[in-house]
Design a protein around this nucleic acid. Structure first.
Lengths: 136, 136
DNA sequence: TTGTACTGTAATAAAAATAATTACAGAATG
DNA sequence: CATTCTGTAATTATTTTTATTACAGTACAA
Protein backbone atom coordinates (compact mmCIF):
# COMPACT_ATOMS: atom_id res chain seq x y z
CA UNK A 1 0.00 0.00 0.00
CA UNK A 2 2.90 2.16 0.61
CA UNK A 3 5.77 2.81 -1.61
CA UNK A 4 8.89 4.59 -0.60
CA UNK A 5 7.36 7.99 -1.14
CA UNK A 6 7.74 9.13 2.45
CA UNK A 7 11.40 8.17 2.50
CA UNK A 8 12.02 9.92 -0.77
CA UNK A 9 10.28 13.05 0.44
CA UNK A 10 12.25 13.16 3.65
CA UNK A 11 15.44 12.62 1.76
CA UNK A 12 14.63 15.48 -0.57
CA UNK A 13 13.70 17.80 2.27
CA UNK A 14 16.85 16.91 4.17
CA UNK A 15 19.00 17.69 1.18
CA UNK A 16 17.22 20.97 0.58
CA UNK A 17 17.69 21.86 4.20
CA UNK A 18 21.36 21.02 3.93
CA UNK A 19 21.58 23.38 0.97
CA UNK A 20 20.58 26.24 3.28
CA UNK A 21 18.29 28.02 0.88
CA UNK A 22 20.37 27.24 -2.17
CA UNK A 23 18.70 25.85 -5.24
CA UNK A 24 19.13 22.16 -5.92
CA UNK A 25 18.39 20.35 -9.16
CA UNK A 26 16.34 17.18 -9.42
CA UNK A 27 19.33 15.54 -11.04
CA UNK A 28 21.43 16.16 -7.97
CA UNK A 29 18.69 15.00 -5.61
CA UNK A 30 18.17 11.86 -7.67
CA UNK A 31 21.90 11.21 -7.48
CA UNK A 32 21.94 11.28 -3.70
CA UNK A 33 18.78 9.24 -3.29
CA UNK A 34 19.78 6.95 -6.11
CA UNK A 35 16.50 6.93 -7.93
CA UNK A 36 15.26 8.28 -11.22
CA UNK A 37 15.09 12.08 -11.60
CA UNK A 38 11.56 11.89 -12.93
CA UNK A 39 10.41 10.29 -9.70
CA UNK A 40 12.10 13.07 -7.79
CA UNK A 41 10.32 15.69 -9.84
CA UNK A 42 6.99 14.00 -9.23
CA UNK A 43 7.66 13.93 -5.53
CA UNK A 44 8.68 17.56 -5.60
CA UNK A 45 5.47 18.40 -7.38
CA UNK A 46 3.64 16.96 -4.41
CA UNK A 47 5.86 18.71 -1.86
CA UNK A 48 5.29 21.95 -3.68
CA UNK A 49 1.55 21.46 -3.79
CA UNK A 50 1.66 21.15 -0.01
CA UNK A 51 3.77 24.22 0.47
CA UNK A 52 6.96 22.56 1.68
CA UNK A 53 9.15 23.52 -1.23
CA UNK A 54 9.27 25.86 -4.15
CA UNK A 55 10.82 25.38 -7.54
CA UNK A 56 12.29 27.50 -10.19
CA UNK A 57 12.20 26.50 -13.82
CA UNK A 58 14.77 27.04 -16.51
CA UNK A 59 18.51 27.12 -16.49
CA UNK A 60 19.98 27.22 -13.02
CA UNK A 61 16.59 26.12 -11.76
CA UNK A 62 15.73 23.58 -9.09
CA UNK A 63 14.05 23.49 -5.73
CA UNK A 64 14.45 24.95 -2.29
CA UNK A 65 12.59 24.90 1.01
CA UNK A 66 9.53 27.11 1.07
CA UNK A 67 9.76 27.63 4.79
CA UNK A 68 12.00 27.12 7.74
CA UNK A 69 12.84 23.52 8.57
CA UNK A 70 11.49 23.99 12.06
CA UNK A 71 8.11 24.79 10.56
CA UNK A 72 7.96 21.58 8.58
CA UNK A 73 6.32 18.92 10.62
CA UNK A 74 7.06 15.29 9.79
CA UNK A 75 3.49 14.27 10.46
CA UNK A 76 2.34 16.77 7.87
CA UNK A 77 4.87 15.49 5.39
CA UNK A 78 3.60 12.00 5.98
CA UNK A 79 0.04 13.09 5.41
CA UNK A 80 0.97 14.84 2.19
CA UNK A 81 2.30 11.59 0.84
CA UNK A 82 -0.17 9.18 2.29
CA UNK A 83 -2.62 7.64 -0.14
CA UNK A 84 -4.11 4.85 1.90
CA UNK A 85 -3.78 3.54 5.41
CA UNK A 86 -0.35 2.19 6.32
CA UNK A 87 -1.93 -0.96 7.57
CA UNK A 88 -3.41 -1.59 4.18
CA UNK A 89 -6.65 -0.37 2.83
CA UNK A 90 -9.32 -2.96 2.49
CA UNK A 91 -9.52 -2.98 -1.26
CA UNK A 92 -10.40 -6.60 -0.94
CA UNK A 93 -14.08 -7.45 -1.21
CA UNK A 94 -15.05 -10.02 1.36
CA UNK A 95 -18.09 -12.21 0.93
CA UNK A 96 -21.19 -10.09 1.60
CA UNK A 97 -23.15 -13.20 2.47
CA UNK A 98 -20.93 -13.81 5.47
CA UNK A 99 -21.88 -11.89 8.62
CA UNK A 100 -18.23 -11.26 9.32
CA UNK A 101 -17.20 -10.60 5.74
CA UNK A 102 -20.04 -8.16 5.35
CA UNK A 103 -18.85 -5.85 8.11
CA UNK A 104 -15.18 -6.47 8.55
CA UNK A 105 -13.91 -3.73 6.29
CA UNK A 106 -15.60 -1.03 8.27
CA UNK A 107 -14.19 -2.45 11.48
CA UNK A 108 -10.74 -2.75 10.02
CA UNK A 109 -10.94 0.80 8.76
CA UNK A 110 -11.82 2.10 12.20
CA UNK A 111 -9.03 0.13 13.81
CA UNK A 112 -6.51 1.15 11.19
CA UNK A 113 -7.41 4.80 11.28
CA UNK A 114 -7.01 4.92 14.99
CA UNK A 115 -3.65 3.18 14.85
CA UNK A 116 -2.42 5.33 12.02
CA UNK A 117 -3.38 8.43 13.94
CA UNK A 118 -1.13 7.29 16.74
CA UNK A 119 1.65 6.92 14.22
CA UNK A 120 1.03 10.35 12.77
CA UNK A 121 0.95 11.89 16.20
CA UNK A 122 4.28 10.37 16.91
CA UNK A 123 5.76 11.69 13.67
CA UNK A 124 4.32 15.09 14.45
CA UNK A 125 6.61 15.38 17.41
CA UNK A 126 9.46 16.06 15.06
CA UNK A 127 10.15 18.78 12.57
CA UNK A 128 12.48 18.63 9.61
CA UNK A 129 14.91 20.66 11.70
CA UNK A 130 14.96 17.93 14.35
CA UNK A 131 15.37 15.22 11.80
CA UNK A 132 18.07 16.99 9.83
CA UNK A 133 20.02 17.92 12.94
CA UNK A 134 21.29 14.36 13.07
CA UNK A 135 23.42 14.96 9.99
CA UNK A 136 26.79 16.61 10.29
CA UNK B 1 6.00 -2.97 1.97
CA UNK B 2 2.90 -4.28 3.37
CA UNK B 3 0.53 -6.70 1.90
CA UNK B 4 -2.85 -7.46 3.30
CA UNK B 5 -1.49 -10.03 5.70
CA UNK B 6 -2.64 -8.25 8.83
CA UNK B 7 -6.16 -7.85 7.48
CA UNK B 8 -6.29 -11.47 6.45
CA UNK B 9 -5.06 -12.61 9.84
CA UNK B 10 -7.61 -10.50 11.68
CA UNK B 11 -10.34 -11.79 9.42
CA UNK B 12 -9.34 -15.37 10.09
CA UNK B 13 -9.14 -14.83 13.82
CA UNK B 14 -12.51 -13.11 13.87
CA UNK B 15 -14.12 -15.99 12.02
CA UNK B 16 -12.54 -18.53 14.32
CA UNK B 17 -13.75 -16.56 17.29
CA UNK B 18 -17.22 -16.48 15.80
CA UNK B 19 -17.09 -20.26 15.50
CA UNK B 20 -16.76 -20.47 19.29
CA UNK B 21 -14.23 -23.24 19.42
CA UNK B 22 -15.62 -25.08 16.43
CA UNK B 23 -13.27 -26.20 13.71
CA UNK B 24 -13.25 -24.19 10.51
CA UNK B 25 -11.77 -25.21 7.17
CA UNK B 26 -9.46 -23.05 5.11
CA UNK B 27 -11.93 -23.36 2.29
CA UNK B 28 -14.62 -21.74 4.38
CA UNK B 29 -12.30 -19.01 5.63
CA UNK B 30 -11.16 -18.29 2.09
CA UNK B 31 -14.78 -18.04 1.05
CA UNK B 32 -15.56 -15.35 3.60
CA UNK B 33 -12.38 -13.39 3.00
CA UNK B 34 -12.63 -13.93 -0.72
CA UNK B 35 -9.06 -14.94 -1.32
CA UNK B 36 -7.31 -18.13 -2.31
CA UNK B 37 -7.38 -21.01 0.22
CA UNK B 38 -3.66 -21.53 -0.13
CA UNK B 39 -3.03 -18.02 1.09
CA UNK B 40 -5.27 -18.71 4.04
CA UNK B 41 -3.36 -21.84 4.91
CA UNK B 42 -0.08 -19.95 4.72
CA UNK B 43 -1.42 -17.29 7.01
CA UNK B 44 -2.72 -19.93 9.39
CA UNK B 45 0.69 -21.53 9.40
CA UNK B 46 2.04 -18.23 10.70
CA UNK B 47 -0.76 -17.78 13.24
CA UNK B 48 -0.12 -21.28 14.47
CA UNK B 49 3.60 -20.69 14.74
CA UNK B 50 2.80 -17.79 17.02
CA UNK B 51 0.37 -19.73 19.16
CA UNK B 52 -2.82 -17.97 18.17
CA UNK B 53 -4.51 -20.91 16.50
CA UNK B 54 -4.26 -24.66 16.23
CA UNK B 55 -5.07 -26.88 13.31
CA UNK B 56 -6.20 -30.40 12.80
CA UNK B 57 -5.34 -32.31 9.66
CA UNK B 58 -7.39 -34.84 7.78
CA UNK B 59 -11.07 -35.19 7.14
CA UNK B 60 -13.15 -32.87 9.25
CA UNK B 61 -9.98 -30.90 9.94
CA UNK B 62 -9.45 -27.18 10.07
CA UNK B 63 -8.42 -24.54 12.54
CA UNK B 64 -9.58 -23.09 15.83
CA UNK B 65 -8.39 -20.52 18.33
CA UNK B 66 -5.60 -21.76 20.53
CA UNK B 67 -6.58 -19.45 23.33
CA UNK B 68 -9.27 -17.15 24.53
CA UNK B 69 -9.97 -14.15 22.32
CA UNK B 70 -9.32 -11.82 25.23
CA UNK B 71 -5.80 -13.19 25.45
CA UNK B 72 -5.04 -12.39 21.85
CA UNK B 73 -3.60 -8.97 21.60
CA UNK B 74 -3.86 -7.13 18.29
CA UNK B 75 -0.42 -5.64 18.68
CA UNK B 76 0.99 -9.14 18.97
CA UNK B 77 -0.91 -10.26 15.90
CA UNK B 78 0.51 -7.33 14.04
CA UNK B 79 4.01 -8.20 15.12
CA UNK B 80 3.57 -11.80 14.06
CA UNK B 81 2.77 -10.65 10.55
CA UNK B 82 5.13 -7.75 10.27
CA UNK B 83 8.09 -8.25 8.02
CA UNK B 84 9.39 -4.74 7.61
CA UNK B 85 8.53 -1.33 8.92
CA UNK B 86 5.11 -0.02 7.90
CA UNK B 87 6.68 3.18 6.75
CA UNK B 88 8.82 1.30 4.32
CA UNK B 89 12.14 -0.29 4.89
CA UNK B 90 15.05 1.44 3.35
CA UNK B 91 15.97 -1.22 0.87
CA UNK B 92 17.06 1.58 -1.35
CA UNK B 93 20.77 2.26 -1.49
CA UNK B 94 21.44 5.97 -1.45
CA UNK B 95 24.67 7.40 -2.73
CA UNK B 96 27.39 6.68 -0.15
CA UNK B 97 29.42 9.59 -1.43
CA UNK B 98 26.73 12.00 -0.32
CA UNK B 99 26.91 13.05 3.36
CA UNK B 100 23.15 12.82 3.58
CA UNK B 101 22.75 9.67 1.48
CA UNK B 102 25.42 7.96 3.52
CA UNK B 103 23.51 8.29 6.79
CA UNK B 104 19.91 8.74 5.92
CA UNK B 105 18.87 5.13 6.18
CA UNK B 106 19.93 4.84 9.76
CA UNK B 107 18.07 8.02 10.60
CA UNK B 108 14.97 6.89 8.77
CA UNK B 109 15.11 3.55 10.54
CA UNK B 110 15.23 5.24 13.93
CA UNK B 111 12.36 7.52 13.05
CA UNK B 112 10.30 4.72 11.56
CA UNK B 113 10.86 2.35 14.43
CA UNK B 114 9.76 4.92 16.91
CA UNK B 115 6.65 5.73 14.92
CA UNK B 116 5.80 2.12 14.35
CA UNK B 117 6.13 1.45 18.05
CA UNK B 118 3.49 4.08 18.67
CA UNK B 119 1.27 2.29 16.20
CA UNK B 120 1.86 -1.07 17.84
CA UNK B 121 1.18 0.36 21.26
CA UNK B 122 -2.11 1.64 19.97
CA UNK B 123 -3.04 -1.72 18.51
CA UNK B 124 -2.05 -3.38 21.74
CA UNK B 125 -4.87 -1.62 23.51
CA UNK B 126 -7.28 -4.04 21.91
CA UNK B 127 -7.70 -7.76 22.06
CA UNK B 128 -9.41 -9.99 19.56
CA UNK B 129 -12.35 -10.09 21.94
CA UNK B 130 -12.69 -6.32 21.74
CA UNK B 131 -12.38 -6.32 18.01
CA UNK B 132 -14.79 -9.19 17.45
CA UNK B 133 -17.35 -7.73 19.82
CA UNK B 134 -18.32 -5.33 17.09
CA UNK B 135 -19.89 -8.11 15.08
CA UNK B 136 -23.37 -9.30 15.82
C1' DT C 1 -9.11 -50.90 4.14
C1' DT C 2 -10.47 -47.80 1.29
C1' DG C 3 -12.72 -43.54 -0.30
C1' DT C 4 -13.23 -38.90 1.12
C1' DA C 5 -12.19 -34.46 2.93
C1' DC C 6 -9.13 -32.08 4.83
C1' DT C 7 -4.05 -29.79 5.70
C1' DG C 8 0.81 -28.71 4.30
C1' DT C 9 3.70 -27.24 0.96
C1' DA C 10 6.11 -26.41 -3.36
C1' DA C 11 6.21 -24.69 -7.91
C1' DT C 12 4.41 -21.86 -11.34
C1' DA C 13 1.67 -18.30 -13.43
C1' DA C 14 -0.98 -14.13 -13.39
C1' DA C 15 -1.95 -9.65 -11.84
C1' DA C 16 -1.00 -5.45 -9.64
C1' DA C 17 1.96 -1.99 -7.92
C1' DT C 18 6.16 0.43 -8.25
C1' DA C 19 10.00 2.38 -10.48
C1' DA C 20 12.82 3.42 -14.59
C1' DT C 21 13.24 5.12 -19.03
C1' DT C 22 12.39 7.89 -22.96
C1' DA C 23 10.75 11.86 -24.94
C1' DC C 24 9.79 16.42 -25.54
C1' DA C 25 7.54 21.06 -24.70
C1' DG C 26 8.33 25.17 -22.14
C1' DA C 27 10.92 28.36 -18.96
C1' DA C 28 14.88 31.03 -17.55
C1' DT C 29 19.57 32.30 -18.10
C1' DG C 30 23.81 34.03 -20.18
C1' DC D 1 19.56 31.47 -29.42
C1' DA D 2 22.01 27.64 -27.30
C1' DT D 3 22.00 25.65 -22.93
C1' DT D 4 20.21 23.78 -18.74
C1' DC D 5 16.81 23.22 -16.18
C1' DT D 6 11.50 21.77 -14.89
C1' DG D 7 6.90 19.63 -15.96
C1' DT D 8 4.63 15.95 -17.65
C1' DA D 9 3.01 12.08 -20.44
C1' DA D 10 3.66 7.66 -22.31
C1' DT D 11 5.86 3.39 -22.26
C1' DT D 12 8.51 -0.31 -20.51
C1' DA D 13 10.76 -2.99 -16.92
C1' DT D 14 10.98 -4.78 -12.40
C1' DT D 15 9.31 -6.27 -8.17
C1' DT D 16 5.82 -7.65 -5.13
C1' DT D 17 1.70 -9.80 -4.26
C1' DT D 18 -1.83 -13.02 -5.19
C1' DA D 19 -3.89 -16.97 -7.54
C1' DT D 20 -3.58 -21.40 -9.41
C1' DT D 21 -2.24 -26.09 -9.87
C1' DA D 22 -0.60 -30.11 -8.04
C1' DC D 23 0.11 -33.61 -4.96
C1' DA D 24 1.79 -36.02 -0.62
C1' DG D 25 0.22 -36.97 3.97
C1' DT D 26 -3.32 -37.31 7.70
C1' DA D 27 -7.63 -38.55 9.88
C1' DC D 28 -12.15 -40.06 9.82
C1' DA D 29 -15.87 -43.04 8.67
C1' DA D 30 -18.34 -46.40 6.11
Amino acid sequence: MNSSRFSVSLHILTLLNEAKGGIVSSEYLAGSININPVLVRKEIMNLRKHGFVESKEGKGGGSFLAKSAKDINLGDVYKSVRSSNVLGQSKNEPNPKCPVGRQINQHLDALYNDAENALIENLSKQTLADFASGFE
